[in-house]
Design a protein around this nucleic acid. Structure first.
Length: 251
DNA sequence: GCCCAGGAGCCCG
DNA sequence: CGGGCTCATGGG
């Protein structure tokens, strides 16, 4: 299935106009204020339009850990797990390395599969002790992607999320929402390879402000999937694409 | 009670 | 490779 790059940009523009800038990736503390490191209990710290974030290695690490925790988990539960980690000074490489895996599992319990994720995060922390986030940030995107994919608990989607939101690389994150939305819209086939879907978006986003567009597009698709293009029960009435979407069935 | 959330590893044919 | 199973919280 071939999709003109014009279509990608039209869909992106419509989503952005309708939903606005999404402010991903949310951070507990985006002021980097040492006097108030725990974000005073505020939960959804989105930062719409501020693409200078993340600005520190601590913030990058927070996003990387959040990317593990959010797997197949609501952001609400993920936030709680992150707040528990921050409260116990474990949103750091050393903090994680000094924490027994059982205690870690306890702290991240609100996120699902916490025993598994605790093991993976211990593995991550041991790796980052040798290869700090600051070093990863210097790597080429393709090399960094291979490194991320070599870690237990990081698959294709999580690797791309980390590349885009923690390291600000121009990478389009393909998730199940994306496949469903694109299929219904006739942009891609449901069984189409992620690599092919990425190529279509890459071809569309050739202009300036590339990173910003990759950042917003995935976040916008997630928001649209939550509100309207829901996986099982799409709510097409009042959808931005109500009159344009061919509503192709998923099979 | 049901349903679903910003997935990945592993094992098998 | 692709399908099926496991992991195992909390809100609506």
């Amino acid at each position: 299935m071939s999709t003109p790059f014009k279509t990608i940009n039209t869909v992106y523009d419509s989503l952005l106009r309708h939903y606005g800038k999404q402010g991903w990736w949310p951070l507990l503390d985006f002021k980097d204020n040492d006097e108030n490191p725990t974000s005073s209990g505020i939960l959804k710290n989105y930062h719409p339009g501020d693409y200078s974030l993340p600005a520190t290695d601590k913030q990058r690490l927070e996003i990387i850990i959040g990317a593990y925790l959010v797997q197949h988990t609501s952001w609400r539960n993920t936030e709680q797990a992150l707040l528990n980690l921050e409260k116990h000074d474990c949103l750091t490489v050393d903090g994680l390395n000094n924490l027994p895996v059982e205690k870690l599992a306890e702290l991240i319990r609100p996120s699902r599969y916490y025993n598994q994720k605790a093991r993976y995060l211990k593995h991550l922390a041991a790796f980052l002790k040798q290869q700090p986030v600051a070093e990863l940030a210097k790597m080429k995107t393709s090399e960094l992607q291979q490194v991320l994919l070599s870690l237990k608990g990081i698959g294709e989607e999580t690797a791309d999320s980390i590349l885009c939101y923690a390291f600000k690389r121009p990478v389009f994150v393909v998730d199940l929402y994306t496949k469903i939305f694109f299929t219904r819209m006739g942009i891609s086939g449901y069984d189409e390879k992620n690599e092919n879907i990425k190529k279509k978006v890459d071809a569309g986003f050739l202009s300036e402000n590339r990173y910003e567009r990759f950042n917003e597009f995935h976040a916008l698709i997630v928001e649209h999937a939550k509100q309207k293009c829901k996986p099982k029960k799409p709510d097409c009435s009042g959808c931005v694409f109500e009159n344009k979407c061919p509503k192709i069935l998923l099979q």
